[in-house]
């Protein structure tokens, strides 16, 4: 899933972002170092945040299957605001691109969510 909300919060420095991403990637990619990454994340953020991070990592294993299994197109908000980012990150090479018209004109995110104004 292309996460539009990950870069619109205004919080540029996400605490423990590296440990969170490394752990999530190890879980999703079958990294042999998952045990180590789990220990590192727990040590960095504590058990309470770790469990919440594990829950979010887990639920996105479901969301991606719902999206790919049903072939839903990317929402207009994301298509209109992600612009060249998809190309830059290599996301346009994913199989699921075929489900979405990606030539939608770019529009500011605030047009879709007043919180972003």
């Amino acid at each position: 899933m292309l996460r539009a909300s990950s870069d619109v919060s205004g919080e540029r420095d996400v605490p423990h972002r590296a440990e969170l991403e490394i752990f999530a990637t190890a879980l999703a990619s079958g990294g042999a170092d998952l045990d180590q990454r789990r220990d590192e994340l727990r040590a960095a953020v504590g058990d309470e945040v770790f469990v919440e991070a594990a829950a979010v990592a887990a639920v996105f294993h479901g969301y991606v299957r719902v999206a790919d299994g049903t072939g839903i197109p990317v929402d207009e908000l994301v298509v209109a605001t992600s612009g060249d980012l998809r190309e830059e990150l290599g996301i346009n090479a994913y199989e699921g691109r075929a489900n979405t018209m990606v030539d939608v004109a770019e529009r500011p995110a605030a047009e879709f969510n007043p919180q972003l104004k």
């Binding site: 996400v14 294993h61 969301y63």
Partner: peptide, 19 residues
């Protein structure tokens, strides 16, 4: 929320999900 989205993005990218 930004921490949750960092996790979500990493999982989605590893799964190569376009949506």
């Amino acid at each position: 929320r930004p921490q949750a989205e960092a996790v979500a993005t990493a999982v989605s990218a590893a799964n190569e999900c376009f949506y």
